[in-house]
Design a protein around this nucleic acid. Structure first.
Lengths: 224, 224, 224, 224
DNA sequence: AATGAATGAGCGTTCATTCAT
DNA sequence: TATGAATGAACGCTCATTCAT
C-alpha cells in the first residue's frame, strides 16, 4: 500500500505545523500497528516514534481511541482512493473492470502493510464499535462497486444473488491475506492464486444462476 | 464449535483435580479471548473466571505465553478432531467428501467461537512464533486433506496446481469468517454463500486446467 | 561519610524540581540500602520514602537497575570528592599525605553509612557488571593515589612491588570495615587499629624490599 | 574451600535418608548463594536443585531463615575444622604457627567459595541477628587463636594490645577477599600480597610496642 | 516423607490520562 | 503548542508459607 495517504481533517490541523504533526502521528501509529500489533501499541511508543512527549501527543489526540479511530478512518479512506479511479474508469468494460479490480485487491493484499493491518483491523472491529462501523462502511463500498460490475456482466441475476456473489467474492479475496499475504506460508502460490481467482470469479459471475445461488448445489449445474 | 474439547496433557494434570483445574483454565481463557479479545486478556481475569488466585494460576502455568500456547494447541487439535472422521470416511466418494468438507467449514465459521477465535489467532500468530507454528500446521493439515480430495476429483492437475487450488479454496472459505461469521454484517447471506462456495469449488476442482492455474486468465476458458 | 553529596547529572534533572526529586530519590535509596540492605530494597519502599507514587518514581528511573547504577556511581564519586583534595594537597610531604590518607579512610570506615554501604557494594558488584565496573574504577583510583605516595616514600621499589603494596594496604584498610565499622563487634579497638595501621603501613612503605615482596618471607628481614 | 563439610545435627537427621537430604539441601543452598547471591536465593531454587518439591523442603526446614541459620552455622563450623588442627599442632613454634595460619587464611580466601560466601555473610549478618552471632563467634575464635600466638611471640604486649593486634591482622587478611579473591581485579597480586602479609604481620607481632598501639604514631618508631 | 495445591502479598514495570506551566 | 511531572491502576510474575492427603 505504498500510496497510502493519511490525510486528516483533524481539528488541530488548521496550521501547517499542526497538519504535519497529525500526519506524523498517524504514520507512526500505523507503522507500530503493522510492526508490533495493536495489542502492544501504546501512547508512549507512538510519541517516541514522533519525537514528541506523551503530553504533547495528548494535545493532538485526547485519548487513545480517538487516535485509533482517526487512523482507521484515514487508512480505509486511503484504500478508497485507490479503488475509486478504477471503478469509475469509463474506458473499460464491466468484465475488464472486474478483472482489474480482482487483480488490484489480490496484489495489494500481498504488501506488508495490508497483510499486517487488516487482520488487526478485523480484531479491533470486534471490540470497538466505531472501528466496526468504519470497517463495515469500507467493505460495503467494495461490495457496492462489485455488485454494479456483476450486474452488468450477468443481468439475469436478482439483486439478492448479486449481493451474495459480491459477499462471496469479497470474502474469498480477503481470506487470501492470511495465506498468500506478505511473508505468509503460502506466499509462493500468490501468482497461481491470482490466476485461479480471476478465472473463477469471472466464470461464476457469468455463469452462476439464481437457482444455484439460492437453492443449493445441483450436480453438474455449472459445467454442462 | 460446540464440541470443542480442550483436552490437555499438561504436566500438572496427573491428578483428577489438576486435570479439572487445567480444563477450567483453558475454557476460561478461550471464553475471555472470544468475548473480550486477546489484547485485553490478563492472568488476573483468567484467574477470576476460575475462582482461583493469580498465584494458583501461576502454579499451573508458569507464564502467560505457556498458557496461550497450550490453549492454541488445544483448540486447533479440537478442530482436527472434528475434521478427521469426515476425511477418513470410506463410505463417501471424493466429491461427496469435498462437498461435506466445504459445508463443515463454512457452517462452523458461523459459530460464535470460531468467528471470534480465528481472527484473534491470525493476529496472535503474527507476533508469536509458537502460535504461528501451530496455526500453520493446522492449516497445512486442512490443505493436505483438501489436496487428496482434489487429486481424486481431477487427476489431470499437477501437484503444484492441486496445492494452489487447495490454498485458494482454504483462503476463500476462511475469508468468510469476517463477512458471514456470527453476528457479522453479511450473516444474512450465509446460506447463499455456502451454495456459491459448494458450486464454485466443486466446479473449479473439476474443470480448472493446469494452464489456467499456472499461466493466467484465458477469456472464456472455463465456459465453452 | 557525612559530606556525601549525591550530585547527579540525570537527564530528568533539567528543571530545579527534577533535580530535587532525583536528589531525594538517591538519598532515599542510599538510606534504605544502608538501613535494610540491598536485598530488601524495592521501588515501592523508595517511592514511599520520597512521598511519591511508584509510577512517578518510574518516570525518573525507568528501571531499578538504572537507579542502582546511578546511585552507586554517585556515591563512589562522593568519596572521590573527599579524597581528591588531600591527594593533591601540595603543602604536605608524601609521608604526611600517606598518613593523612590512612587516617581519612580508617576513620571514614567507622561511619554508619560507610560501614553499611560498602559490604552491600561488594555483594552487588558480584552480580551486576556495571556496579562491578564502578567499584573497580573507584578502588583503582585509590590504589593509584597510594602508589604515587609509596613511590615517593620508597623509590627503590619496582612498579610491581609498589602496586602489590597498594593492594595490600587498600585491602587491609577495607577489611576493617567489618571489624571496627560502626557498631561492629570490635569497634572499641578502632583507635588502636588506626595506630597500628599508620605505624605498620608507613613502616612497610619505607622498609619493605622488592625481594621480600616478590620472593617471600625472609626471617628477620624487616627488623635488623 | 574444597573440604567444606556441611555436617548437621538436624532434628530430621535421625535416619540415614534424612541426613542425606539435609546434606543435599545445605550444599544446594551454599552453591546457590555462592553462584547467584543471597538476595536472589529462594526456597523454590533450593528445592529445584535438590530435585524435591517446595513442600518437602518445608518439611526439613520450616522457614527460610531456619535453613539459612543452619547453613551459616554449618559453613563456619567447617572452617573451624580446618583451622583447629593447625592451632593445636604441638610440633610448631608460635611464630611458625602464626605464619602457617596467615598462609592458610590468605590462600583460602582465593578460592571461589570463600571469595563469594564471605561478603554475602557480612551482609546477611547486618540484617539477621542469628547470622551476626554466628559470624562474631567464628571470628572471635580466630582472634583468640591469633591472640595466643601473638602473646607467645611478643610477651611484652598487654592483653589489650594483643587483642588490638589480632583485630588488625584479622581485618587486614579478610579485606583481601574483595581484592585478591577468586577472579577479583587484583588476583594477580595474590602471591605478593601473601609475602607482604607474612612479612608484615610477623614483623609487627615482634616489634610493635604497647605505646605505638595505644598512643599513636611515633615517627621512625618502628625502624630504628 | 513427600506431593500437589493454594494463598496472599509483594515484586518491577507499563499504562492512559491529567494538568500546571 | 509543548513540556515535565504526577497519578493510580493494572500488568505478569515470584515468593515464603501452609496444609490436606
Amino acid at each position: 500500500m505504498k500510496d497510502l495517504r493519511l490525510q486528516r481533517r483533524h481539528e488541530k490541523a488548521s496550521s501547517q505545523k499542526g497538519r504535519d504533526r497529525v500526519q506524523k502521528i498517524l504514520h507512526a501509529t500505523l507503522d507500530l500497528i503493522v510492526e508490533e500489533g495493536f495489542s502492544s501499541l501504546s501512547m508512549r511508543k507512538i510519541a517516541g516514534r514522533c519525537d514528541m512527549t506523551v503530553g504533547n501527543l495528548s494535545y493532538y489526540y485526547t485519548s487513545k481511541s480517538d487516535l485509533i479511530h482517526d487512523l482507521v478512518d484515514s487508512v480505509l479512506q486511503g484504500y478508497q482512493d485507490i479503488w475509486d479511479p478504477l471503478i469509475s474508469d469509463e474506458t473499460l468494460t464491466a468484465e475488464e473492470k472486474l478483472i482489474a479490480f480482482i487483480k488490484l485487491i489480490m496484489e495489494d493484499l500481498g504488501t506488508f502493510e495490508t497483510t499486517r493491518f487488516f487482520p488487526e483491523l478485523w480484531v479491533m472491529a470486534t471490540h470497538d464499535s466505531f472501528v466496526c462501523e468504519c470497517k463495515m462502511e469500507a467493505y460495503k463500498k467494495v461490495r457496492l462497486a462489485l455488485s454494479r460490475l456483476l450486474k452488468e456482466v450477468n443481468p439475469k441475476l436478482t439483486n439478492n444473488s448479486i449481493e451474495a456473489l459480491s459477499v462471496f467474492i469479497s470474502a474469498s479475496m480477503e481470506g487470501h491475506t492470511i495465506f498468500i499475504g506478505y511473508n505468509k506460508s503460502c506466499s509462493a502460490y500468490a501468482p497461481q492464486a491470482l490466476n485461479i481467482a480471476v478465472n473463477t470469479f469471472v466464470s461464476i459471475a457469468k455463469n452462476l444462476t439464481n437457482e444455484q445461488i439460492q437453492t443449493g448445489y445441483c450436480f453438474n449445474a455449472l459445467n454442462d
